[in-house]
Write a protein that binds this DNA or RNA. Structure first.
Length: 664
RNA sequence: GCACCUGUAGCUCAGUGGAUUAGAGCAUCUGACUUCGGAUCAGAGGGUCGGGGGUUCGAGUCCCUCCAGGUGCGCCA
């Protein structure tokens, strides 16, 4: 998962870069870790490099530290005002605060919405595929987690300088879509005659009283249950699946139309969360363009797959994997992976190998493309299409990140391993499965949805499309919008705020943690939430606006020619140090491929700002509001800090897809 | 059986080998608005970092082992 080799550094990046270089020169060490001393008197940051050097040099760490201090004092280190040594051998640095603070303010103002960005990814293309929801029902909150993680990674990688292509894979020829088609054609009267090309009577079953994806949600769970008691209906399933794969009948056209309508619904749902894509990749186009045939020939030529003439996989093309064939109590079992079934059809994994090759541009076959729509953010969304045209701009990635839940780890591993077997070692290495844990329902959430909960069982319930158990994404958004709309100045802001709350909620958790969804926790608007972060941003905007309106400041004064006061207070210092962290947090989030560090940072930044706002002068008996400060230098400096904070948290929120609101 | 993930306060979670005293939020309790936005802030109580070994100057963090929970290991997708 970790694939930047950038060194992690501590708080005061700018300065530490210089200090690190200076120490490297003196000691000849490679990487130096900085940290924050427990006591403010020790300094602003420190390093324990002398402790680890003690062994190498076979000298007392305290002595090394003293010598290093003497050497460093000969070098002019920018912003460093004092170096000290504390037992057992820490080297502490104090910063010249006024000049440091000014440099950060100037830098944020100069870089604006680019502040925090780096170009570590320059010249490299990353294809990130996420969402990938079966187009046969409404999205639930588990799907939302995928889209939110995926879109956040897209955003942060762009800020790290990568050329990013965001793809959403549409499995329109799979069993799930087929199930809904079977239901619409055969479950309720009128029943399809199996031949007619006019299917309008089937479409008429959907009465439009609720959104189409909601309607399909119920239809899908009904057919899943109906299969158990109706063998005739279940027989239709194989028939429809076959027709859909063949792509040449009225039924196939019907399925494509169902999938298309659902895709529109899904895109509308995620757009509410500020999630957008560059390309929709349709599974039907993978079949139509013959991706598998091409990959199959390459696999055979490379000797990566074998045709079994005996054993449990007799008649199949398989890739040798794991322990191969082995004996168990139940007889012969195989860990080899079947790519072509004995009936000649290709498995999902087989098709996925071909698709993964396309992503790297090593398949030798391409899709046809056309414009799908212009998205709400103004960006073009393209789609693969049988009626499209050639394009050279898609795929051909240096790295591929597939956002898929952790349960698919085994299959993903096989796909990447097959790439290696084909000789695509570099591509295999650059294939990343961004695996995340699932979202389950707490017992109380399940009970609220009317699911029968066994109190004796474990404290949560898995969501299930087949059973119709789950919280729909749009329902969660709607509930939140309703709760928030009483206190916002316009309806649009309630939507943004709800999206912020949900994106923050989903981003707080490490990707490896199961989210046990609980309504109270997800709908909370106080404390550690996206609403708190939005509130801090809106408050900062409000202060700046008011300062301009009351004539005590101008937009220009808040940004340029800021003069420093003689002393920097502790809340001011804490704020500026936190602001300076953004680019490191972005790098770390990029390394971990997770929005979690950025979400936590946004909250910390908002907290530090609130502290600065509440108590800018800790020693004073009474706090004076910034806009009422008499001293023009101090007033303008404080307002400049507010503006610097506003820009920084806006950039941070943007990196996890939260729209910063100027007013709530 | 094999592989992977998780285990930190009553609950939900942070924690990048680094410092006396392991941090937030929620919940509970006590306080604070005539001011720039109270969706806020100040304070209190609450911990065998699952157990045990090891490496290290230093371990919640790395290694081993055990325990508990979860997920994979289809000619499903």
């Amino acid at each position: 998962m970790l694939w930047h080799q950038t060194a992690l550094k501590g708080i005061c990046t700018l300065i530490q870069d210089y200090v690190e270089k200076a120490i490297n020169k003196i000691l000849g060490t490679k990487e130096i870790a900085f940290n924050i001393p427990p006591k403010r008197e020790f300094g602003d940051f420190s390093t324990a490099v002398c402790l680890s050097q003690a062994k190498v040099q076979k000298r007392a760490p305290l002595q090394i530290a003293e010598d290093l201090k003497t050497e460093l004092e000969k070098v002019k280190l920018p912003y460093v005002s004092e170096i000290s040594v504390t037992p057992p051998g820490y080297l502490n640095f104090k910063i010249d605060h006024p000049s440091y603070v000014k440099s950060i303010i100037d830098r944020v103002n100069k870089e604006g919405d680019k502040f925090g960005n780096t170009n570590v990814g320059r010249g490299r293309k990353v294809l990130i595929e996420h969402t990938n929801v079966n187009p046969n029902k409404a999205m639930h909150i588990g799907h939302l987690r995928n889209a939110i993680i995926g879109d956040s990674v897209v955003r942060m990688m762009r800020k790290l300088g990568y050329h990013v292509e965001a793809c959403n894979y549409i499995d329109d020829t799979g069993a799930q879509v087929a199930d809904v088609v079977v239901a619409m054609l055969y479950m309720d009267a009128p029943v399809y005659d199996g031949k007619s090309t006019d299917l309008s009577a089937m479409w008429a079953k959907y009465d439009g009283s609720q959104p189409f994806d909601y309607w399909c949600w119920d239809v899908y769970s009904r057919i899943a249950q109906a299969y158990d008691s109706d063998a005739a209906l279940k027989a239709k399933r194989a028939e429809v699946l076959h027709a859909v794969e063949a792509q040449d009948s009225a039924v196939a056209g019907f399925a494509k139309e169902v999938a298309t309508r659902i895709v529109h619904a899904h895109l509308a749902t995620v757009a509410r969360l500020n999630v957008y894509y560059d390309l929709l990749n349709w599974e039907s186009d993978i079949f139509l363009r013959g991706f598998w045939r091409t990959a199959f020939e390459k696999l055979k030529a490379a000797g990566a797959i074998v045709f079994e003439i005996e054993g449990p996989n007799k008649g199949c093309w398989v890739v040798r994997f794991g322990r191969g064939v082995f004996k168990t109590d139940e007889g012969l079992k195989s860990e080899d992976k079947v790519l072509v079934r004995s009936n000649g059809t290709v498995t999902y994994t087989g098709k996925d190998i071909a698709y993964q090759m396309w992503k790297f541009g090593v398949l030798g076959v391409d899709f046809l493309y056309k414009l799908w729509e212009v998205q709400a953010n103004g960006d073009y969304l393209w789609t693969t299409s049988p009626s499209g045209e050639d394009a050279n701009s898609f795929g051909n990635a240096d790295r591929v990140i597939n956002v898929i839940d952790v349960r698919q780890s085994y299959t993903q591993h096989i796909v990447y391993d097959c790439l290696k077997k084909l000789g695509f070692k570099k591509e295999a290495k650059n294939s990343i499965h961004l695996d995340y844990e699932v979202v389950v329902l707490s017992n109380s959430a399940a009970a609220e949805l009317g699911v029968a909960v066994d109190a004796e069982e474990s404290g949560n319930q898995a969501m299930s499309g087949r059973k119709g158990v789950g919280v729909k994404g749009d329902d969660l958004l709607n509930t939140l919008v309703k709760r928030l709309s009483e206190k916002v100045n316009k309806e649009e802001n309630a939507n943004h705020l709800a999206a912020a709350a949900i994106r923050y909620f989903m981003s707080r958790f490490s990707t490896g943690k199961i989210i046990v969804f609980d309504f109270d926790e997800a709908l909370r608007t106080t404390g550690d939430t996206g609403v708190y972060c939005e509130y801090a941003h809106a408050r900062a905007c409000s202060i700046l606006t008011k300062a301009v309106k009351t004539g005590v400041s101008s937009l220009k004064a808040q940004k340029t020619g800021v003069q420093m006061p003689e002393n920097i207070t502790i809340p001011e210092e804490n704020l500026i140090k936190k602001i300076a962290e953004l680019s490191n947090v972005l790098k770390r989030a990029g390394q971990e491929l997770s929005p979690a560090p950025l979400a936590h940072y946004a909250f910390e930044l908002a907290t530090v700002f609130t502290d600065f706002y509440e108590t800018p002068d800790p020693d004073a008996e009474k706090q004076v509001p910034f806009i009422k400060i008499e001293d023009p230098i101090l007033r303008n400096y404080r307002l400049a800090l507010v503006n610097t904070f506003r820009q920084t948290i806006a950039n941070c929120l943007d990196s996890i897809g939260i729209v910063p609101l100027e007013r709530i």
